[in-house]
Amino acid sequence: MIKLTEINKSEALRYIGGGKVDMNDKMNALLKICEKEILETATPKYLYKKIPLKDSGLIIGKSIEQHLKDCDEAVLICATIGSETDKLLRTASVTDMAKAVVLDAMASVAVEQVMQEVDEIIAKENPDKFLTWRFSPGYGDYPIELQEKFLRILDAPRKIGLCTNDNSILTPTKSVTAITGISEKPIEKRRKGCAGCNLKETCKFRKSGERCEF
């Protein structure tokens, strides 16, 4: 079980945008309140499973083929911070939109923090292997519709209450699915970069001259 003890606030601010803004006391106080509420509400849950890639039906498109080209196996991962967080966000949207924006960003950061912890668990379980970085449906040309298959293989609806809707949107919304390749030999370092990203035209980080660090 993963328990979050803090939320990376500067990361949350980056999600909100406006990276060079001066902080004031009011904003700091808002961040603190929101962090507390997210930590109280989030119920992090995750699943992962090592699978052979051959005949898995999961290699669709150039992006993932390139990404996993040195790998015979991969780990499927999914994580969520639960549906109560969605309720918290909905309530804030009705009563205090400023808070809702901060909560929303913090909830996204929280899921990412859970995924990072899962990365570490997987790395520890595969000490002699080489791992790619995490790749999610929706990156590059990797179809977002595959999320449903990921969840089915992981038995996620039953085990952690994570589903998709008819438009391949994860529910609860603050959730992630991903695949990490496992290789016997060192993996050629490829920068993640914007070139292969399907959000590159609209990305708010790129617009402000930053990167999302993906």
Binding site: L13, I16, G18, G19, K26, L30, D96, M97, A98, V101
Partner: peptide
């Protein structure tokens, strides 16, 4: 101010509220 990156979105919203 928001467009000029002088304030954060939540501050813009607080003012709007």
């Amino acid at each position: 101010d928001f467009e000029a990156n002088k304030i954060f979105l939540p501050q813009l919203i607080q003012s709007a509220n």
